[in-house]
Design a protein around this nucleic acid. Structure first.
Lengths: 353, 353
DNA sequence: CTGAAAGCGCTTACAG
DNA sequence: CTGAAAGCGCTTACAG
C-alpha cells in the first residue's frame, strides 16, 4: 500500500520537500561534505521546520554499529568485596545496551599494585576499545593513562574518584567532604556533653590516600561550624593488619576513657568493629561501605551507621553515560554526585548496593 | 556484496538451515498458528541450538509498534508537592522509551476526592491505553478499577501503595512496616533513659489510612524487640489544619514534659515542625518525605530525619516495568521494595527525590 | 500450511 | 555534487 506524498515519514518526506534524494538528506543530517551550500541550506531549513528527529532504531539497524567499552577497575579481593557492586551495575548496563550493539569488557587490576594497574591498562589499550570507564587509583599513573586515552580521542568516564585536570566525559561518584560532614552529624546526634570522638584512618598508603583526608576534613568542619566543644582526635594507622590496628587502637583507648564515638574513614571499619567487640566495648562506630563484613557488624550492633555512595549505580551510570554519548541519546553531565546513603540495621535489607 | 550461505544472520540463517522461508520462521518465533508440527519442531530445535535472540530494533522497526501508557496518580496539590517526584520519574522514563514508540499520558485525580478519582479513571479507560500505571488511593474504588483493567487484559503496575488480591504485573513501593522500625531506631540512638516518645498520626481519614498504622506498628515493634523501657504514646489527629494540630499537640505536650521525641507517620511532619518552632521546642522530630516544606525544616534543624522512599524512582521503574513487559525486554519482578533512605541536613543536597 | 515480496526508516557503496 | 539501489533484520499482507 503506497502512501500519498504528503504522509511520507522521515528522510523521505524531507527529500520530497527539498526535491533531492534521501542520500543527500542523509549527508546533510550527518554534516558530511560533498553537498552544495544551496541544497544544504534548503535541507537544513526543512529539518528545522519539521523538527525532524531521525529514527534511532532504523539508524542503528542500518549501521549495524558495534561498540566495545573497556572497563578498568580493581578486582574483588580477599579483603573487600566492594568492587563487586560497581561490577554488578556495569553488567546490568551491559545487558541493557547489548541489544544496541554494545559489548562491555572488564579489565581488573590489583588494588595494591601499580605494576598490575599499568600492565592491565596496556592490555586494555591493545584491544582498541571505543570508550573507557576508569576507576582511577594511583593518581599519577592514572593521569598518564587518561592522557593517552584522550589522545586516542576516546570518551572516558571516571567512577569512584575523580582525577583533576583531565579531559574526561564525566565523573560519577561521591562528594567525600560532604560524606564526612554527614558522619559527624550522625555522631553528634548521639553524643553526650563530655564524650570525645576518635577519627581513625587506616591505609597502607596514608600519604597518597587523599580520600581519607577529605572525609576527615568534612567531619571536623561540621563540629567546628556547629561550635561544638567536642574533643576530636585522629589516629593514623598505616597498616591494615588486625593486630597492628588493635595495638594502636588499644593504646589510644586506654589513654583516654572518655572516647565514646569512633569514625573510621573508609571501609576498614570492620577491623575496628572486630577489635571493639573483642574488648566488649560499645562505642558509637561509624564507617563506610556496604561490604558483607560490615553488614555483619551492623546486624550485631557493633557498627551503628554505614555511609554508602551507591557503588552499583556508579557502575551502571558510568556505562550508560558512555552509551548515551556515543549513540547521541542525550547530553552527559560532567559531574554526577551520588546521593549519600545512610545504612543501619533497620534498612540494609532493602539496599541494593 | 553477497554473503556466503554460512554467514547469514538471524531469521535468514534459521530459514536456510530449516529449509523454509523466513515467513515461517517468524510464525514459529511468535507462536502463530498455521505451521505444521514437523516444521515447527524443526525450527524450534534450530532456534534453540543457535540460542537465537531476534534483533529487537529490527522487530520494532518492522512493526512500527506504538503504545500508549496511562498513568493515574494524584495531582500535585497546594498542600504537598510529593507527587511531583513520581511524575518526574515517569517523565524521564517516557523520554527514554519514546524512541521505541511509547507515549505516556498522565491523568491526575484530586487526592481528597473519590469522585475525582473515579471520573478521571473513566476518562483514562475511554482513551484505551495499552497499559496502566496506578497509584491506588481509596482502596475499594481502586480495587474495582483494577478488576476492570485486568478484564481488559491490560498490564497494570502499582506504585506507592499495594492493593491486595489483584492480578497486577508489579508493585513498586515502600515497605511501610520496616520504615517505621527504622524511624524507631533513629530515635533510639538519641534517646536518654527517661525520655518519652510521641507518635502522631495526622490524616483526614484516619480509619482508612492503613499506611499510618503499618508504620506505627513497625515503630512500636522495634522498641518492643529491643526490650526498651521507653514509654510511647500515640496522638491521632483527624484534621490537617495547623490550628487543630496545634491545639491537640499543645495539650499533649503540656500534660507530659518528659516527651522528647516525636515521630510523625507521614509527610505532614512540617505542620508539627512549625508548631514546635513557634513554641521554641527542640524535640527530636522524625517524619516522612522529601517535600520542600520538610526540607526547609531539615535545614533549620527543627526536623532531624526525613525518611524517603525514592518517589521519583518509583515512577521511573513503574513505566519501565510496563515497557519491559510489553516489549519483551526482560521479566518483571512482582514486588519491588524501594530502599529506605534517611535524609538529614547534611545529605539532602545530593538526594534526587 | 508455506513462500515471495514489499516495507519499516536509515545508511552505504557505487556510478555518474 | 547528487541519485538510484541494495541492505540492515524483522513483519506483514497476499497468493497459492
Amino acid at each position: 500500500m503506497k502512501k500519498t506524498a504528503s504522509e511520507l515519514n522521515g528522510v523521505k518526506e524531507i527529500a520530497r520537500r527539498a526535491n533531492v534524494s534521501i542520500g543527500t538528506v542523509d549527508r546533510v543530517m550527518h554534516n558530511r561534505k560533498g553537498v552544495s551550500d544551496a541544497t544544504r541550506l534548503k535541507i537544513e531549513a526543512i529539518i528545522k521546520e519539521l523538527n525532524f528527529q531521525p529514527n534511532k532504531m532504523a539508524s542503528l539497524l542500518a549501521t549495524r554499529k558495534n561498540m566495545n567499552f573497556a572497563v578498568l577497575i580493581p578486582a574483588v579481593s580477599e579483603e573487600t568485596d566492594y568492587w563487586s557492586y560497581p561490577l554488578n551495575g556495569i553488567n546490568q548496563a551491559a545487558a541493557e545496551t547489548n541489544q544496541f550493539g554494545v559489548t562491555v569488557k572488564p579489565y581488573f587490576y590489583a588494588l595494591d599494585s601499580k605494576e598490575s594497574f599499568n600492565r592491565v591498562a596496556e592490555e586494555m589499550l591493545k584491544d582498541e576499545p571505543h570508550a573507557v570507564l576508569l576507576a582511577p587509583s594511583f593518581v599519577e599513573d592514572s593521569q598518564v593513562l587518561a592522557k593517552r586515552i584522550n589522545e586516542l580521542g576516546l570518551p572516558l568516564a571516571f567512577i569512584n574518584s575523580d582525577l583533576a585536570g583531565q579531559d574526561n566525559l564525566t565523573y560519577i561518584g561521591p562528594d567525600l567532604y560532604q560524606s564526612g560532614r554527614l558522619a559527624a552529624q550522625l555522631v553528634s546526634f548521639s553524643l553526650k556533653p563530655l564524650d570525645k570522638v576518635l577519627i581513625i584512618n587506616i591505609s597502607a598508603d596514608l600519604r597518597n590516600d587523599h580520600h581519607l583526608v577529605r572525609k576527615e576534613h568534612g567531619f571536623k568542619k561540621f563540629f567546628e561550624e556547629t561550635r561544638s566543644a567536642t574533643h576530636i582526635s585522629t589516629l593514623n594507622i598505616s597498616e591494615t593488619k588486625v593486630c597492628v590496628v588493635e595495638e594502636a587502637l588499644t593504646r589510644t583507648l586506654n589513654a583516654d576513657n572518655t572516647i565514646k564515638a569512633i569514625f573510621v574513614t573508609n571501609s576498614r571499619v570492620n577491623i575496628v568493629a572486630e577489635i571493639l567487640k573483642k574488648h566488649r566495648r560499645n562505642d558509637l562506630l561509624v564507617g563506610y561501605d556496604f561490604l558483607e563484613k560490615n553488614i555483619d557488624y551492623l546486624k550485631s550492633g557493633q557498627i551503628k551507621y554505614l555511609i554508602c555512595q551507591r557503588p552499583k549505580e556508579q557502575g551502571y551510570l558510568g556505562i550508560m553515560a558512555l552509551y548515551k554519548h556515543l549513540y547521541n541519546v542525550s547530553e552527559v553531565e560532567r559531574f554526577v554526585y551520588m546521593p549519600i546513603d545512610i545504612i543501619t540495621k533497620e534498612n540494609y535489607q532493602f539496599y541494593n548496593g
